[in-house]
């Protein structure tokens, strides 16, 4: 029995379809939904002294922007659906962070959209759904 679904959501078309699918499932099963937006971030990049100084302020801005322009509209859209929908914004490696979040939330399904990255960058870095397909700790659904 599904009780909690985590959806990777960045506002893109495929993410919107993923969320629609997750909501569908949630209504049928009476589950709750966590809308997760992950900002790509590596602790091993290089910054200038100025960037270091401004980093904290910029992080607050990014979190605020992600909340108001990505998460809030999604939550509003399904406010009247009767399903408990919560939102969260995280930093980190997208696939790893989603997997960790799913475990922390004790969710039993993870839903991601098949993203529209170019073939070249996929070949070099692998896509989020591909990485998750190999590492997911719980049931994973990839929405085209």
């Amino acid at each position: 029995m599904t009780t909690k679904i985590v959806v990777a959501y960045d506002g893109s078309d495929s993410a919107v379809r993923a969320l629609e699918y997750a909501m569908d499932q949630a209504i049928k099963a009476g589950a709750s939904v966590v809308v997760a937006h992950v900002l790509e971030w590596s602790p091993y990049t290089f910054l200038t002294p100025e960037e270091i100084e401004e980093r904290h302020a910029r992080r607050e801005d990014e979190l605020k922007r992600a909340k108001t322009s990505v998460i809030d509209p999604a939550l509003e859209k399904y406010a009247a659906s009767g399903v408990t929908v919560t939102g969260t914004v995280k930093y980190g490696h997208v696939a790893e962070t989603l997997a960790r979040l799913a475990t922390q939330e004790k969710a039993d399904q993870l839903v991601v959209g098949r993203q529209g990255q170019s073939t070249l960058s996929k070949r070099f870095f692998g896509s989020v759904p591909m990485t998750l397909a190999q590492t997911t700790p719980i049931a994973l659904t990839i929405i085209p």
């Binding site: 602790p43 910054l47 270091i52 995280k90 960790r100």
Partner: peptide
């Protein structure tokens, strides 16, 4: 992990070193 997005120790070291 909840502090991700802030400057990491690695980044601080790398920046100080490049100076």
């Amino acid at each position: 992990p909840d502090d991700a997005g802030e400057v990491s120790h690695f980044q601080a070291l790398a920046t100080a070193l490049s100076g």
